[in-house]
Design a protein around this nucleic acid. Structure first.
Lengths: 134, 134
DNA sequence: TCCTAAATGATAAGTTTTATCATTTAATAG
DNA sequence: CTATTAAATGATAAAACTTATCATTTAGGA
């Protein structure tokens, strides 16, 4: 019962996340797969990403005001998004924030989770800005 | 030059945020205004909210996977959203997190901002859950 | 009161994602 | 090695939120 079938599409979606050097969004994953498997549907990409997230095989990165990105690295870590090119990168935070969060007053709420979304300008875009100025 | 006109619609949008006891989203603001001013357009509500945010008269609260909410309280503070009813409330965090953030390794990015989105279950929804269980 | 550009209202369209449904297909049973 | 059947797919519509477009209205100064 409750059979989960292994399809080639699901394999392709997982590979696209696992072998990406960045943290792609659904559209970028679709673009990568459609080159080798032109019949794949966007709906299938979204469906399989949701399945893989539910199964814990892929991590969803939510950002503010843009599409979700997906990450092969499963452990708890943080991300920063470039405000220029929208690229998402890993960021080193340590466990200081987790400790801070333990001490907040939740005003009667039962705290379930929190997400921190950092924004900044990536090295590539800094270079572009410097080049454009001269 | 560059005249900014005071319209009744802009006044109504500001009032709807300023006199709300919660942190309403654009749709809730529209719903509140349309009762007294039925001809107002949703586009006008969105436009004026953007203007008021740009002018610093209203604060935008971004949440993950849902519409923006708006806040009359301008100072830097944090919010928690109920995962059941989607209500947004203020939360007391202190300045501990700000201090933590100063020490992170941004991996080459120039850090511009960060937002922390807390999620939990509000007191009202906790009561409902307890009531449903018995 | 007149002028004019800013603001409005109606609506189309953009963006991201999910829902629907007929068709295909993976995996199991025979 | 088929036949079966429900899960998965592909195509597409639609939902949710927000912005863009544009003809019309209007605020506020001349």
């Amino acid at each position: 019962m409750k059979e989960k079938r292994q399809t080639i599409q699901k394999g392709l979606v997982w590979e696209a996340v696992a072998f990406a050097d960045n943290h792609p969004n659904a559209e970028q994953i679709y673009d990568a797969i459609v080159l080798k498997h032109p019949s794949i549907s966007r709906a299938t990409v979204y469906r399989n990403l949701n399945m893989l997230v539910d199964e814990g095989k892929v991590k969803r990165i939510r950002v503010l005001g843009g599409p979700d990105h997906f990450d092969k690295t499963l452990g708890n870590h943080y991300h920063i998004q470039c405000t220029k090119c929208k690229k998402v990168s890993d960021i080193e935070v340590g466990d200081a924030i987790g400790i801070c969060v333990k001490n907040i007053d939740t005003c009667g709420y039962v705290l379930e989770s929190y997400e921190i979304v950092f924004n900044g300008v990536c090295p590539d875009c800094q270079k572009k800005i410097t080049a454009d100025m001269q």
